[in-house]
């Protein structure tokens, strides 16, 4: 298990994933704002939420990088394409299961069941995040493939 590689390259891969998602957002491809989505778990102030969410995302990304690094260690090798395979699995689970389930635990994310008393302010992402724009899954897939690619390449080179 490459602990030093995990610590450094996990951070870099997460930064790359975040950059792709923010670029997709700025390019008008999606309304998914990952830092806001994560940070609004802690605070209702959108400006503070984005800061908190950015760091939360780094932590989460580092956690997932642990899984990738462990998988590479079990396989005994790390390659760019293995990283992308893991990225594909990762994004499938994230879009297909985690994102739709978020509304059940996120205090400021409305659900499809929201009623007049709902004080949640964020729209639910829906299956595959499609409520945030039809190109949201594309952006998310590309971002996670980049994440896996970065980890596979960097850890494979050591």
């Amino acid at each position: 298990m490459d602990w030093a590689g995990w610590a450094v390259f996990g951070l870099i891969a997460t930064a790359a994933l975040t950059a792709v998602m923010i670029a997709a957002q700025l390019a008008g491809l999606t309304r998914l704002d990952l830092p806001l989505l994560l940070g609004s778990v802690f605070t209702g102030d959108p400006d503070r939420a984005r800061v908190a969410g950015f760091f939360a995302h780094l932590v989460v990304g580092q956690g997932f990088a642990l899984g990738y690094t462990a998988a590479f260690a079990l396989w005994g090798r790390a390659t760019w394409w293995l990283g992308m395979v893991l990225g594909a699995v990762h994004v499938s689970v994230a879009l297909g299961a985690v994102v739709p389930l978020l509304a059940g635990v996120h205090p400021r994310l409305a659900s499809g069941r929201a009623g007049p008393a709902s004080r949640a302010t964020l729209e639910p992402p829906g299956l595959l995040g499609l409520n945030y724009g039809v190109q949201t899954p594309v952006g998310a897939v590309v971002a996670h493939l980049v994440y896996g690619l970065a980890l596979g390449l960097a850890l494979g080179a050591r």
Binding site: A110, S111, G112, A114, G115, P116, S118, E123, P124
Partner: peptide
């Protein structure tokens, strides 16, 4: 209010 879609506002 009845015409406001609660899940998105």
């Amino acid at each position: 209010r009845l015409l406001t879609y609660s899940p998105s506002g």
